[in-house]
Design a protein around this nucleic acid. Structure first.
Lengths: 301, 301
DNA sequence: ACCTGAACACCGTTCAAGT
DNA sequence: ACCTGAACACCGTTCAAGT
């Protein structure tokens, strides 16, 4: 038996653990750091050992997790579909929807698409532009339909359309809000045009039409931001809203010492009166439309 | 002359450049990378050379910039004020106000406070909690004053209060919005209590009171988000809104091919009818209050 | 008691090199 | 033409060590 290089010996040992089932598919194999400790070798040796296993196809680097055991049953995308801008944008969209915008990193995206991070830059100039493409794609998913003749029905449909887009893609609340630098999105522009068209027959001045549109937009945007923050909190902490409230009860109690809040208390003890973002949307939508109706009455009267 | 170690020779050369004025205070000295290229030495040598200069007090590491020449005139905080939670929070607040929330990193904060990043963790459990402390501090800056007896005046004052808080600290739009997991802030709770108090004498149900409050909150939040995104864009790109518009004109023109937008065009060519977030705030505030007034009339009538 | 340095596991992006 | 690897200059946080 010739003296085997240490890195091969280490790779062999980890291979044995995998084949014996002691390390199941998806499990993390020892990190380079762990290997240096366990075998008393240098980092370079540990890295080489893992690289050998990676080359064999036994393990794979999962960004954000570490090096994990590959599942041999999961038939790897043998039809290595070519990398295209659309494929990148769609994958990024899915990722943002399920794990939040923070999870969309070039490296993570690259492993999902089975390429290197740098290959993405051949199809997309950078992350900023990628996010812009994602918003445009998202705005194109839901059709607006023909504009109703009644301005109120039209504004209401526009608000519901926007709310649905945000509901499908909560992360969009973080990027859509800019008013003076509108998102360079064909589909977002079509939406604005649609709303202005709906208001065209009203006696409002062009400036008032734009203000009316953006008032409703800001309200829906504020709600979407709340939606997004809560979703993000759920993903980050793994806690539901109720669990979070329960866990933070002592802190809320401690804050009571800063002064009594009888009205807030009354509401909290009634369980927030079935307050949901859905009921808030319906309430606020009606109030805002009533307010705009008052202005239109005033102007035409 | 004994053979000087290479790292000392390199340090001496850079020192000469500084003393000769070829490298002025604030200028970047060669990075470790640049040193390896210029002198053909290993990274370890380059690092040791810079460390020597740092120890002398001639240069200092400016996170996000590199190693820069120290200004000897700027009398360094000789009264090394002790590190306290308040001092950390105030410094973080200033930093977020001037450079955005993204600029608030533990390392950056530490150099501003003349300590190591890890020293901060002795006073603050982590970054999330730091941001929470910042919001509470910010909400405490502006006094709400006594509540008016008229609900409409009260709601209006609440909206203006919130808008002022956001105007002073644009980054807050990113963290305040959550409704089901309220920010654990004494001062934010006091604000909610104040608004509910203002609405107490109206004939609205408790649930409607809460909805009315949050409708206005969502609107102001949506506007604040726009403010923040625009500020952030200005900081990131260094472009004013007008410069940005000019630079992106070709892209907007290209989008026209996706369909004609006559109404948007008409507005764009009139310069947006003096649309500003300020005029939008005034417009939307009035509409929302009118809408709530309609509900109150209906309920009491 | 308080602070530090090195390390871990990440980021986006540049650049030179490979097929 | 397309993709890759190494590198740069960062992150937040843990841990063991220093004064």
């Amino acid at each position: 038996m010739t003296t085997e290089p240490p890195y091969l010996a280490i790779a062999a040992e980890i291979r044995r653990r995998i084949l014996a089932g002691r390390l199941a598919p998806g499990d993390r194999v020892p990190s380079t750091r762990a290997i240096t400790r366990e075998w008393g070798v240098a980092m370079a040796t540990a890295t080489k050992a893992l690289a050998a296993l990676r080359q064999e196809g036994l393990v794979r680097v999962e960004p954000g997790v570490g090096t994990v055991v590959v599942d041999p049953k999961r038939t790897r995308h043998s039809t290595t579909s070519t990398l295209t801008r659309t494929r990148i944008v769609r994958t990024a969209l899915d990722l943002a929807d399920t794990e939040g915008l923070n999870a969309v990193t070039m490296r993570r995206l690259a492993t999902l698409l089975d390429t290197s991070a740098m290959a993405l830059y051949r199809h997309v100039p950078g992350k900023g532009e990628l996010v812009r493409l994602m918003t445009d794609e998202a705005c194109g998913e839901v059709p607006l339909g023909p504009a109703p003749t009644d301005w109120r029905q039209g504004l209401e449909r526009a608000a519901r359309w926007l709310r649905e887009v945000y509901a499908r893609h909560r992360w969009m609340a973080q990027v859509m809000a800019s008013l003076s630098r509108p998102v360079l999105s064909v589909n977002a522009m079509a939406y604005t045009e649609w709303v202005l068209g709906v208001l065209w027959e009203t006696p409002l001045s062009p400036s008032q039409k734009l203000h009316a549109h953006l008032t409703l937009f800001a309200f829906v945007q504020g709600l979407a931001m709340a939606d997004d923050l809560e979703e993000q909190a759920r993903l980050d902490t793994g806690l539901s809203d109720d669990e979070w409230m329960e866990q933070n009860e002592p802190r809320f109690d401690a804050m009571q010492s800063g002064g009594p809040y009888p009205l807030l208390d009354a509401i909290a003890h009634d369980g927030g009166f079935e307050l949901s973002l859905e009921s808030l949307f319906e309430f606020g939508l009606r109030r805002t439309l009533d307010g705009i109706a008052a202005l239109i009455d005033e102007t035409s009267g």
